[in-house]
Design a binder for these strands. Sequence first.
DNA 1: AGATGATTCAAACAACTGTTTGACAAGTCA
DNA 2: TGACTTGTCAAACAGTTGTTTGAATCATCT
Lengths: 222, 222
Amino acid sequence: MNLNTVSPAPEPAQVATRTQILEAAGEVFASVGFRDATVREICARAGVNIAAVNYHFGDKETLYLEVLRYSAAQAHAQYPPLLNVSPAAPAEERLRAFLHSWLLRTFSRGATAWHGQLISREMVDPTGALDEIVRDKILPMSQQLRGIVGEILGRPPGDEQVRLCTLSIVGQCVFYHHCRPVLTRLFPQQPPLDTLGTERLADHITRFSLAAMRHLTDPATT
Amino acid sequence: MNLNTVSPAPEPAQVATRTQILEAAGEVFASVGFRDATVREICARAGVNIAAVNYHFGDKETLYLEVLRYSAAQAHAQYPPLLNVSPAAPAEERLRAFLHSWLLRTFSRGATAWHGQLISREMVDPTGALDEIVRDKILPMSQQLRGIVGEILGRPPGDEQVRLCTLSIVGQCVFYHHCRPVLTRLFPQQPPLDTLGTERLADHITRFSLAAMRHLTDPATT
DNA sequence: AGATGATTCAAACAACTGTTTGACAAGTCA
DNA sequence: TGACTTGTCAAACAGTTGTTTGAATCATCT
């Protein structure tokens, strides 16, 4: 069992309350975290009995794990790493697509929106689920981005420069999502990131990072 | 009352258990978060009675706020924003000092180490204390960095380019701290960031960001 | 129809939480 | 000394939590 295989896939009869619980739990876990989320609140929102969670998922913790798998599958299905850009496209173009897809995924509203929140929480306060997430989702994306960066820098993917630059790029993306509560307080006049905003933001990060990588080894740089 | 004034400063008689609680609470809050931290655990670690928290701080929540103020004061006293670099130094040098100080502050061990953890948690899952933190600590540092970036870019601090670049720089710093659990899983062979590591990392972020800002508007950039 | 198994439900359970209580000790000032 | 404040302590309180229980309902198949 891993994050790439959506769990058992039960018969249509039981699927109703099961997914209702998954959706409700996604909302609640994302907004208040695992510990502050109560089974009662989840069940109330799902319109099912309190005992349903334990009946269908065993306990609260495995429900949380299932929600993580469920949201991961949805998010990555809706926004694949390179969007609609060909893997044969120039590295610069793939970089822009990668970043835009990332921002869309983490900033999307609705069902896939939990995913970003859940992952953020998982990073600062890991549960047992983080190992699975890193193995099945983050590591592959990390390797993909390192390939792109390696092409741009003209160095092998295992190179230390490539690794550092990759992290500098990802860091910018993660930051906007993790620190949203801070950013909205720092810039109250700034509107929240909508679809148009993510495209502009992806453009800035791409240009910033490309300029950095192209001139990182300039002799002029201190 | 704000984050810059360390609370009442009681007489030496009562100060003992009070600071014992603060230190113990700092450890516990930082490692498991506000909700998962129990007053019993904190008091046990501090070697005081359970009722001591309510007697000295009123309730758990104001204890948390006091811990935040306490750790903020310690962290910023130990690592001032520009370290020992003069405010009259060149912008590039101030940028490097700012980033190095930031990394030292958030990655320091011991007493000031809680601060970074607490702030990280506060960003992903804000309590009522975040407003105070942003107002007293983050906003001034943000303005300081925007001044430096503005100088480098040759634009006013309120400029949109300056704002975006500032965030791109801070994002890289925050990322390494927020996502440490992920990074240690992605690169198990990589040693944890010690004093030597933070200097090398500050150097990379400085060079990366300087190269980016100097060539952000190059016509060659896509 | 009748039996079987799956699912739902209200109610209760046991454990843990932050907080309060009232007694007790220690120091302070008249 | 004696009243008074301050601090500490064990014990209990009231509320919330995840989980379990056993009966009731539903669907399915012989």
